[in-house]
Write a protein that binds this DNA or RNA. Structure first.
Lengths: 340, 340
DNA sequence: TTGAAAGCGCTACCAA
DNA sequence: TTGGTAGCGCTTTCAA
């Protein structure tokens, strides 16, 4: 079925009685080659099922047309690997990279080496790196940045960094979520999430800003630190209620998955949503509108984010400087919170 | 910050006053080289931040150590791209591939070319291909199989195929889901899903088998054909009820996301779950146990599946034949169905 | 508009 | 246990 020996560019050249230069140019659509010749050779290549050997052309051109995408996981729990939001970002990046002629090499921070620039760039595995999530420590990311490798990070674009960060306006998101609950007459609003995380800490700042602005007592700290998984949120809420009763009437969750965990813990205790407790999530994953009650949340526009991340990376691949970019967020009002 | 010119293996050899052969062997941990020499050279490489150029070694060895993973999407809706189950499979494959020394090149079926073997294998982009999902047509997959390229497919392992398929026992899953509802006293059980899909059609067979076995009337066909997305399921259920009222008391959903859409449509109409209608999903995505009520479902063991898929692929990469494998499934009883 | 030829950086055969 | 060296398949400079 398969042809005997894989044909090479040289073989194709012989078949067509032209030089390898000509075939190479023709297959790369180089306008130097007469259009007829180009088309003839392209047809011949297709006929013989020939594809350029990328290993060879990468070696020769010193360019891979591959981008490494690193899921920067905080811990190794299954849950965080499969957060639909992160995976959605990967999917959108894949689309966008393909469109720009790049392939996506998927990786995660649990890999053996910590020297990402060396592993991916020096070794010619990829031309650039996109890191999804700043995690709790940005050491590895900074190492890449210092190496000068093309790099874009999905994270918090507000804080200072010497590399290009694309991310939502997390502070504003936290603020809007909290304000929305306050305007729905919530008085004791819980912040549920991990303030050590760069992005989450910004959301927390927004939460504090809203409380302050509306003269709610900030000192009674209703911040419940918890990992960014549904399970952790579920456990935290359950434990908190067991210990202190229902001491809150609103929850600002740091992600939709966290909100989901909280929602379950509350519903199991027959606490009315939103009548007793209003909840706002963050991300707007597909599931948010399908929950019952549907989840009010802060939507992150992953499509635009992916487009901009790729743009910023391509800029660097072309030797230009890249900036950090703030992506607009939007409050999506649904049924898990009272309207005002 | 970065060293002037990127150092090569030859440069390193000169520095160490040994031959390039020795350095190459040392860095590849070849036991031919004396242990001391090996360690000395590895240390030197680390010190100079040297990584082997993969483009070069791939060209030389004709091996990439890369596996292309193709998400075989049925349509281009955002929803199906972001089905948490598919993405979970990708995540598990990534872990497993890394462990075996392979990298994961992520792709999807929306790419320009349809000749996957040519694009990935002939071009030396990857050594093998894993396709996630058989979709409605297996034409592209069969083309790869016929080319002789190493290939493993996540799909329905029961039906005949001339390539290695790894997948759950879908027929049994459909059967168990249906039986469970029947034993919970459901009399009119809806099958919600797309029977054109290879995997879904097996689940449908299991559904029919259970109905038959328990003497329920199979002729009154309660199969509601619907795309594998929450949105589609939601719309279908809503439309069906509008037209015919609540003519069913059980739903076998073809995936958890489909179950989620059905759940929402029912709850919005104040239909009790499981008192009025019992629901069983398929997949056991993370969210299933966090829904309210938590979702009874057929668990697919993606961890084992990923391990076996990689094993079967590696077999082929080593020139051995690979088989299809059936992964065990398990009914996870939760609160969306009545217990018996 | 096309061709000749050098060489990208590595590996593995053969020799020592 | 180590070294010399050919060559993987392509691109691109220089020449025609």
């Amino acid at each position: 079925m398969a042809n005997e020996n894989k044909i090479t560019l040289a073989g194709l050249a012989k078949l067509a009685s032209v030089s390898t230069s000509t075939v190479s140019r023709a297959l790369n659509d180089n306008p130097l080659i007469k259009k007829e010749t180009r088309e003839r050779l392209q047809a011949l290549a297709k006929e013989h099922n020939f594809s350029l050997n990328r290993a060879a052309s990468r070696l020769r051109t010193q360019k891979t047309n591959v981008v490494a995408v690193i899921l920067n996981l905080t811990d190794s729990t299954d849950q965080s690997i499969s957060d639909p939001f992160l995976l959605k970002v990967v999917g959108d990046l894949n689309q966008e990279l393909n469109q720009m002629g790049y392939e996506l090499l998927l990786s995660n921070s649990l890999m053996a080496t910590e020297d990402w620039a060396n592993y991916f760039i020096s070794s010619s595995r990829a031309d650039g790196i996109i890191v999804i999530g700043q995690g709790k420590s940005t050491d590895n990311i900074e190492k890449v940045a210092n190496s000068g490798a093309p790099l874009v990070v999905w994270g918090d674009p507000i804080g200072l960094s010497n590399y290009s960060v694309v991310g939502s306006n997390n502070e504003l998101g936290g603020y809007l979520a909290t304000k929305h609950l306050i305007e729905g007459a919530c008085k004791n609003i819980l912040f549920l999430g991990d303030p050590e995380h760069a992005e989450m800490s910004e959301r927390h700042k927004g939460y504090i800003r809203a409380l302050t602005e509306f003269n709610l007592d900030v000192r009674r700290n209703l911040t419940l630190s918890c990992d960014i998984t549904s399970k952790a949120a579920y456990d935290k809420i359950a434990a908190a209620i067991l210990e202190k009763g229902l001491f809150f009437d609103g929850v600002v969750a740091t992600s939709d998955m966290v909100a989901l965990g909280a929602l379950k813990a509350l519903k199991e205790r027959y606490i009315g949503i939103p009548s007793d407790v209003g909840i706002v999530g963050f991300d707007d994953i597909a599931m948010a509108e399908l929950l019952h009650p549907s989840l009010t949340t802060i939507k992150q526009d992953t499509k635009s984010a992916a487009k901009i991340m790729v743009q910023q990376l391509v800029k660097q691949l072309n030797g230009q400087a890249a900036q950090s970019t703030v992506i607009d967020i939007e409050l999506i009002e649904r049924n898990s919170s009272r309207t005002h």
